[in-house]
Design a protein around this nucleic acid. Sequence first.
DNA 1: CTGCCGCCGTTCCTATAGGATTTGTGCCAT
DNA 2: ATGGCACAAATCCTATAGGAACGGCGGCAG
Lengths: 232, 232
Amino acid sequence: MPAPSPSAARAGFPVSRQVLADHVYEALLEWLMDGRLEPGAAVSIDGMARELDVSPTPVREALARLEHTGMVRRVALKGYRVAPVFTREDFAELMEARLSIEPVNARLACTRMTPEGLDSLKQAVEDLKTAPRGGSFAEYRSYLEADERFHQLIAAQANNQFLLAAYNTLGGQIQRFRLFGGVGITDAEQAIAEHQAVLDAMTTGDPEKAAAMMVDHVEKVRGRAMADAPEE
Amino acid sequence: MPAPSPSAARAGFPVSRQVLADHVYEALLEWLMDGRLEPGAAVSIDGMARELDVSPTPVREALARLEHTGMVRRVALKGYRVAPVFTREDFAELMEARLSIEPVNARLACTRMTPEGLDSLKQAVEDLKTAPRGGSFAEYRSYLEADERFHQLIAAQANNQFLLAAYNTLGGQIQRFRLFGGVGITDAEQAIAEHQAVLDAMTTGDPEKAAAMMVDHVEKVRGRAMADAPEE
DNA sequence: CTGCCGCCGTTCCTATAGGATTTGTGCCAT
DNA sequence: ATGGCACAAATCCTATAGGAACGGCGGCAG
């Protein structure tokens, strides 16, 4: 099977005009977030190629891109492994980084907020409130997704490509921690209230308050996670 | 020619136990910083492979990694291009991002500074002072290198992997701007004094002053570059 | 002279082949 | 029984082949 696309291309709809490596990238990202690939596990190039029924070349390219996100680590001539679980130290560093970037994003986003952006934010908070938060992972998956989306949207509304890129690098790690950090959802009600507070400041158009509320939120996230003290 | 390595590997010294894609990555990075690859220029995979006398596969992998640094952009099925020159808008965003990250780095670095780190910083400032700043690019190359090294060292001393990663993403762009921003070295004496001020605060061990001096420096860099008003 | 069309080269993209090295297993000797 | 060694499998890495699409160029019709 040389290429599966021409049939679709001839139909006038170049629908699948996407590179195979992109599909592999997204598949790997999803597997990483799903927990199907556990931290520390080896990610064999050939094996993954067999699993996805493609050749090793696109897998190699996808992994090369993924490495820069910190989700996987590469050792030359040894292969790729899923990044190990966060230690308490790692987590502290991650929160420190969030505290230096996210409040800035919040302040800028507040001054540059578009009506559509505000609507998206409101939707994210609404989704947080209505999302099921049952015990199984599949159940609170949408909750975590809305959480990440909220922060991502703020970074996007800050309207600064570099800050957005910087946040996105963190965002993947944050989301991965939410999944594998050892803590499930703790005090969802309070977390939602904190998000709401940020949103309110945005709606009011008070940049300083938005930044302050973001600081408050991240610090409390840190507090809750540290209190629940994962393993080690 | 299947593989050029075994001759060296048999000698007992697996000296060149490095992946070819790494060499390509470094070569491309150097070419990007040297100006041999001008902004906007197409970077053909096959062409680059011929030029470096390797197969397209390692080139593809190197470019995939490079994309995440923002140095090159990729359009699916069209290929890679060197990222275009900074607009004034881009530059303003970059400085905004620096202002939200570098002072934090400076503050943290000040509290966590090691003696060796301080020595490295002093060396960097010393190199700034002694570096030639002639008209030709090759002459002030070492000046720019020392400038970048100073900021990079501070990010490293902040001892936070995420902040370091965030800075490094910016660092490449900053360095690229220093080269292609249209402005050469303006007011080197004043820039050196600003670096020295940051270093002094670090030596004294005054985190707040270090952060303040860093803010001052970045803002003045922005001022100088904006005043010199590149094209457009 | 101008506009359109087919041809050819280039390029991206994926698959496949094969060399080099590491890892695991089973067998043999001590 | 245990330690060491050979063989085999898996893996990484690079090169090569070939399909599909895009772009430029020359020739031909109007």
